[in-house]
Computed example of a mutant assay.
Amino acid sequence: MDMKSTDEQTVLLGHGSGGQMMKRLIDDIFFEAFGSPELVVGNDAGVAELPATGRIALSTDSFVVTPQFFPGGDIGRLAVCGTVNDVATSGAHVRYLSCGFILEEGYPLDALRRIVTSMADTAREAGVRIITGDTKVVERGGVDGIYINTAGVGEVPAGVDLSGANCAPGDAIVISGTIGDHGIAVMSQREGLAFSTDIVSDAAPLNHLIAAVMDAAPHVRCFRDPTRGGIASTLNEFAAASRTVLEVEEQAVPVRPEVRGACEMLGYDVLQVANEGKMVAIVPADEAEAALAAMRSSRYGEHAAIIGTVCELACGTEPYVRVRTPWGSTRILDMLVGEQLPRIC
């Protein structure tokens, strides 16, 4: 039966049955788009080569964003970028992904094809292969259309040991570009907000940018992609792990004017808004300019900036993050409390 017949334009419960309908779904949509040699063999596990470095990095994440299509991306691109970036922050060479789909009965197959094609395109851009996966179908109302889980694996080169605990007084804080784009893009689409300039998601695979920084700044301390909770959560996590104080120069943080305006209108602190295509790096001061140049020479690092410094923690105090304002005063930057933008990724 042709997948495009009138009775198979949407996901049906039979597509999760393990029988012929599921096979057609897998062959005509997933295999067609992903097509890695390891996947099309059809085994329960994809078997692939990893150089014998002795260490691997493994990460998994689930994506439930609403709406599933938004300016600058979709849930499929988000799923690949999110896991690629999480694995890459360890300094690993990201190699392989798995993907699991939970589909709602009645979900349009054309939308599923569009999402899967987006995932395949993003995986090719990142230079990774999707080698195994899973599909489940639930009754109408069981999920909001489609949820995706991805897991990624890569090998960690010998001698690489990146961790927020490595941050040291005097280190520089570097961000790869403008912040808040993803969170505001999704919110504007969800709430029907109109701005004078289009705001689009920054979702992007950053493994190549990270590799460029590691080549230019071989003593880089750590990386982190500031997703939910924005750079506020990321910097507080670094401060706690290293028992230091992180100081941010507010004027140095790159923010698009339309994103800043939207945050002011909505009452958000842009430092707490989610990103999906930005990377924070902590590097020794004498390697900061090299790291900055490497980011700016990469595809997604045009607006990279040095935004602050790691400072020594005073005796008897707890780690924290402070922001130096344009007027010379400082304020404490706390982690986000609760959920500012639900279902943002």
Rank of each mutant, 00 (worst) to 15 (best):
L58W: 05
S59A: 15
S59G: 15
T60L: 10
T60A: 14
D61P: 10
D61I: 06
S62F: 13
S62K: 07
S62P: 06
S62L: 12
F63V: 12
F63S: 09
V64A: 14
V65E: 11
V65G: 00
V65W: 02
T66I: 13
T66S: 10
T66V: 15
P67V: 10
P67E: 13
Q68F: 02
Q68I: 13
F69W: 06
F69P: 05
F69S: 09
F70D: 04
P71R: 06
P71E: 10
P71N: 12
P71C: 09
G72S: 07
G72V: 05
G73Q: 11
G73A: 10
G73S: 12
G73M: 13
D74L: 03
I75P: 03
G76D: 00
G76Q: 09
G76P: 01
G76N: 01
R77K: 14
R77M: 14
R77E: 15
L78W: 09
L78V: 15
L78I: 13
A79S: 15
V80D: 01
G82K: 05
G82Y: 12
T83I: 11
T83L: 01
V84R: 12
V84K: 04
V84I: 15
N85R: 06
N85I: 08
N85V: 07
D86T: 14
D86C: 10
A88S: 15
T89A: 06
S90G: 04
S90A: 09
S90C: 04
G91Y: 04
G91F: 02
G91R: 07
A92K: 04
A92H: 01
A92Q: 01
A92N: 06
A92E: 02
A92V: 01
H93P: 00
H93I: 09
V94N: 06
R95N: 11
Y96G: 05
L97Q: 05
S98T: 15
S98N: 11
C99G: 12
C99V: 13
C99L: 14
G100K: 08
G100C: 11
F101S: 01
F101A: 04
F101C: 06
I102G: 00
I102V: 15
E105R: 00
E105W: 00
E105F: 01
G106W: 03
G106E: 00
G106L: 03
Y107N: 01
Y107D: 00
P108K: 00
L109Q: 04
L109F: 02
D110I: 06
D110E: 14
D110M: 02
A111I: 02
A111Y: 08
A111W: 02
L112I: 05
L112E: 00
R113C: 02
R114W: 03
